[in-house]
């Protein structure tokens, strides 16, 4: 009984720790700047200013920003899931030379901070052959800088996804492969027709993680979009526009952040049932 009570309070603590920042964000998004600047801390907006939302959305082309973020995050998610699953399958089921060192090399990728690879990756994108006016050797143009492809490509690989998928596929009975082989399936067909349809839990979990990471990414879109004109501006870049040299317009910033958070919420809620199952899938080896 004592354990249950302690557990309840522990859960309540975590719920509050996670929920209070969100409630403050909601509250500030409905306050006036005068109320935000008032000396006393006010949690309840008075008066409630719903107009902060249309005001925030009229600060720039938010339809475009939301589309850009959704497109980049959506495409990154779909493509990376396919590639991660395929790579994970290869490492779990196919014997090939240097398999183990290659897997260790992929895992090592998880330990390199993205800041380290930022500039080399940018140079690679700039020198991408036959794109943006580049020749076959990647010279003469801007490559994939200022393109959706440049924003998406770096996300479609990922050590973590490969690792998760490999662990997940290791739990599958080998008889599945043998049965598929007897039915005349090649490796790719086996992956597509048998493994992929059974991968909903792990792909659901990865989809949430991947989409959230791509949606929240700030630095990569910052360096990859130089043409201005809002064509490729993502939500995270646009969120920095609610400040000038002297002040931050907190109410509009929080209103825009609320809108931005809704997308993540929708993805999470739609994938929720797979999320926990997917995260736990690699924990027990059968």
């Amino acid at each position: 009984m004592t354990g249950r009570v302690a557990g309840f309070f522990l859960l309540m603590f975590f719920l509050l720790a996670a929920g209070i920042p969100f409630l403050i964000m909601l509250s500030v998004s409905l306050q006036s700047m005068e109320q935000i600047y008032s000396p006393s801390l006010a949690l309840l907006p008075n008066p409630v200013r719903f107009s902060n939302y249309p005001d925030a959305m009229s600060n720039g082309n938010w339809t475009r920003y939301l589309f850009n973020s959704a497109y980049v995050a959506g495409m990154s998610t779909v493509l990376s899931l396919f590639i991660n699953a395929m790579t994970g399958y290869a490492f779990a089921r196919i014997a090939f030379p240097l398999k183990r060192p290659l897997f260790v090399l992929i895992l090592a990728g998880m330990m390199i901070p993205p800041q380290v690879t930022l500039v080399p990756l940018f140079i690679q994108m700039k020198q991408f052959p036959l794109a943006g006016g580049n020749n076959l050797f990647g010279a003469g143009g801007t490559g994939l800088v200022d393109t959706y492809a440049g924003l998406i490509l770096p996300y479609i690989a990922g050590s973590f996804g490969v690792f998760m998928c490999r662990q997940f596929y290791l739990m599958f009975p080998k008889e599945l492969d043998e049965a598929a082989k007897m039915d005349g399936c090649g490796r790719f067909r086996t992956f597509l027709s048998i493994y992929l349809p059974l991968s909903a839990p792990i792909l659901g979990a990865l989809a949430v993680l991947k989409f959230t990471a791509a949606w929240n990414e700030y630095t990569w879109p910052l360096v990859m979009t130089n043409a201005g004109a809002d064509t490729l501006t993502t939500v995270q870049l646009a969120l920095t526009r609610f400040r000038n040299e002297g002040e931050i317009f907190w109410n509009q910033l929080m209103a825009a952040t609320m809108v931005s958070s809704l997308a993540i919420l929708v993805v999470f809620l739609s994938m929720q049932k797979y999320f926990v199952a997917g995260i736990l899938s690699g924990s027990v080896k059968e």
């Binding site: 495409m75 991408f128 794109a131 943006g132 006016g133 143009g141 801007t142 994939l144 800088v145 200022d146 393109t147 959706y148 492809a149 440049g150 998406i152 043409a227």
Partner: peptide
């Protein structure tokens, strides 16, 4: 998404 890889000059 590939066609958008060609920036206009």
């Amino acid at each position: 998404f590939l066609p958008v890889g060609c920036a206009q000059k």
